[in-house]
């Protein structure tokens, strides 16, 4: 298990991502953040706090659980699903989807499908902490925390809990 991002690095990365998002969305006037379960939710919250610090105003944050929209559903045991919580209208909004790691792009495909069922946003952006390559669908993030090249048998784990925030690369398959 190899640490590929420390807490300090993550804080710096989030500040930079905030700045980039603000720049590209005209100061975030019309944005909302939507974190993809599970780690994207924490990251969306962290981004919101950063935005509040810099802009004095926090965007609304929603949560997506994409389990019911996945395309690999019948090939794996069902995971414990949790609620999707979007208690604001996304119609006409600039939605920033937030996830921890982008790999094949399939989760984002599912997230876009689910999002569309809630309304018609003005524009959807994608922000990820780690881009590990290996895309199987034509989906590319707009805001990237860090790019790394990971092998197929490697797993990237983002740990955010009780003041800790780190990213690890492990080589055995996930249990």
């Amino acid at each position: 298990m190899e640490r590929i991002m420390t807490k300090n690095e993550m804080v710096r990365v989030l500040k930079r991502l905030t700045a980039e998002i603000m720049e590209d969305t005209s100061g975030g006037k019309n944005i909302c953040l939507i974190g993809i379960r599970s780690m994207g939710v924490h990251l969306a919250e962290m981004l919101k706090n950063e935005i509040r610090k810099s802009e004095k105003k926090a965007p609304p944050v929603g949560i997506l659980d994409v389990s019911l929209y996945r395309d690999d559903f019948s090939r794996r045991l069902p995971r414990r699903i949790k609620e999707t919580v979007i208690d604001f209208d996304i119609e006409g909004k600039d939605v920033v989807l937030v996830d921890d790691v982008i790999w094949t792009g399939r989760t984002i495909r599912a997230a876009l499908d689910e999002l569309i069922d809630f309304g018609r946003p003005n524009r959807v952006w994608l922000c990820v902490l780690i881009d590990r390559g290996g895309r199987e669908l034509p989906v590319q993030p707009d805001f990237i925390g860090k790019k790394i090249e990971a092998e197929k048998n490697q797993w990237i784990e983002v740990k955010i809990e009780k003041g800790k925030a780190e990213v690890f690369l492990t080589t055995e398959g996930r249990k």
């Binding site: 690999d72 019948s74 090939r75 794996r76 045991l77 790999w103 094949t104 399939r106 398959g173």
Partner: peptide, 9 residues
């Protein structure tokens, strides 16, 4: 409905 194989990407 879930599949019984948990090797996932």
């Amino acid at each position: 409905a879930g599949g019984k194989n948990e090797n996932i990407a």
